[in-house]
Nucleic acid binder design. Structure first.
Length: 274
DNA sequence: GCGACAG
DNA sequence: ATCTTGTCGC
């Protein structure tokens, strides 16, 4: 019988998909840029003394995230928000509720989450929206990733946008561990700031851990996405942190959850029946 | 074999 | 990611 030798367990199909995905990641990674590569400049907070400086300032900072239905784990809401760097107010938001076919597999988050987020970016670009982000902050890692190509890199390359990856938990890579980082932060308490490089066993620095708020002991993990240096990434994060999580991502998180709750489930059923 | 594993 | 209440504190 043919069935006897059939290789169709979930496990084997997953591993073959992974091989395909690894190739895709390595292919896209060849287009990755790990340095500052943009036309705008970071705003300086002097009182107009340098208003004659050339070029546009960074002002429109995007943030993306997904929230999931508690009832149906395959239902998700992707959110794209844009924040005005001058006051951290949200000046744009858009949502898309989708049914995800692809499960979450560590190291392959982009294949699950990137499509809906790219769609939201593309829609804004097609409309030539004036607030189209100059920089995108992503809920997920950049090069802090087993193959140096996390969701933030994936989105950056695909959308050709400068991106920064923000992890709320450490993806263990190259010997880096959450507890190890915690110890380093505690040892650093006096001298350096609340910011330590994430240098692994191989001596490669994958990003930085940062205590973004006075009150928070738990750091966030910043890594390069695309076309932004770590130094610039850290500066932007500092400019956008009212709370532990940078405002663009925090707002995308809050609003996507909110949108999902208001547009699905019982609330939506009630609305439809009236 | 065992444990780890962004969201 | 999501399940989950109150609670301590500025």
């Amino acid at each position: 019988m043919e069935n006897t030798h059939e290789i169709s367990t979930a496990e084997t199909s997953l591993s073959s998909v992974n091989n395909c995905w690894i190739e895709a990641q390595e292919s896209l990674k060849r287009r990755l840029i790990l340095e500052d590569d943009f036309t705008w400049r970071l705003p300086t907070h002097d009182n107009g003394l340098e208003e004659n400086a050339r070029g546009e300032k960074l002002r429109y900072v995007g943030g993306v995230d997904l929230s999931f239905s508690k009832d149906d784990a395959s239902i998700a809401c992707g959110a794209l928000v844009v924040v005005d760097l001058e006051n951290l107010n949200v000046i744009y938001d858009d949502f898309s509720v989708v049914r995800l076919q692809i499960p979450y597999i560590p190291g392959f988050l982009a294949f699950r989450e990137a499509p809906v987020l790219l769609e939201l970016l593309e829609k804004m670009k097609q409309n030539a929206h004036p607030f189209y982000p100059q920089l995108l902050m992503v809920d997920g890692n950049g090069i802090l990733h087993p193959r140096g190509f996390g969701l933030a890199c994936h989105l950056g390359v695909m959308a050709n946008l400068p991106t920064i990856g923000i992890g709320k938990n450490l993806h263990h890579v190259d010997g880096l561990t959450q507890s190890g980082v915690k110890e380093l932060l505690e040892a650093n308490e006096n001298c350096a700031r609340d910011l330590i490089p994430l240098t692994g066993n191989s001596d490669y620095t994958w990003g930085v851990a940062m205590r973004s708020t006075e009150g928070s002991l738990k750091p966030i993990f910043i890594s390069i996405g695309h076309r932004v240096s770590v130094d610039t990434a850290v500066k932007v994060v500092k400019m956008t942190c009212k709370y532990r999580v940078p405002e663009p991502i925090r707002q995308a998180d809050i609003r996507s959850r909110d949108y999902l709750q208001k547009h699905t489930g019982v609330a939506k059923l009630m609305q439809n029946s009236q």
